[in-house]
């Protein structure tokens, strides 16, 4: 795609001094002063009761949870059942499923811009009541079509775990 304008940059002029008029009444007309303010922070985040899922990924296992009370099975795990409030147990999910729905992201949050275009999909598994959000790799993003829905896909795992949900991704079966 050809761009017909110069990309905007975030860097502006650094301002050191601004003149003031003698008549303070004229300050109502002063253009707003805009400064840049940097903000950065490291959070110490515990996965807490969701931790086993990430430990599973590090061992090439895709773990969901199942309610011990009503048997409802979650592809995206939760320690307590949304349907009945009972405690859930950890279970292995099938590593093969189908694309339930998907999109191709050409833009994204700033953190993911450099990875575009990428394919986001919700995967459904046989015998599992809820879905799993993941990236699909191995399809041509430009060839997106509703026919991708229902496509059989299988889980692949990063060799070196980063303890993020992207340690697992899905590829079409046969690739």
């Amino acid at each position: 795609m050809s761009e017909s304008r110069v990309p905007e940059e975030e860097e502006g002029t650094v301002l050191f001094k601004v003149p003031l008029p003698k008549d303070l009444g004229a300050l109502r007309e002063l253009a707003p002063l805009i400064i840049k303010h940097h903000y950065e922070i490291d959070y110490i985040h515990s996965y807490a009761q969701d931790s086993p899922f990430f430990a599973g990924l590090a061992n090439k296992r895709l773990l969901g949870t199942r309610c011990g009370n009503c048997n409802y099975t979650y592809a995206t795990p939760r320690a307590h059942c949304m349907e009945c409030g009972g405690p859930c147990d950890w279970v292995d999910l099938p590593q093969e499923g189908q694309i339930h729905t998907f999109t191709v992201c050409y833009y994204g949050s700033e953190a993911f811009l450099k990875e575009t275009p990428f394919i986001l999909a919700l995967i459904e598994f046989p015998g599992v009541d809820t879905l799993f959000l993941t990236r699909v790799v191995g399809l041509d993003p430009q060839a997106s079509s509703l026919d991708w829905i229902g496509m059989a896909v299988k889980a692949k795992f990063r060799r070196l775990s980063t303890f993020r949900p992207t340690d697992v991704y899905f590829v079409p079966i046969g690739t």
């Binding site: 969701d50 998907f102 833009y107 949050s109 993911f112 986001l120 829905i149 993020r164 949900p165």
Partner: peptide, 21 residues
């Protein structure tokens, strides 16, 4: 932020998946 945001957190992406279905 455990399961959705890190995969490519982007609301337009979420809405696109909903309308594709």
């Amino acid at each position: 932020t455990n399961f959705d945001y890190p995969v490519g957190g982007f609301y337009s992406g979420y809405y696109a998946m909903m309308v594709v279905r």
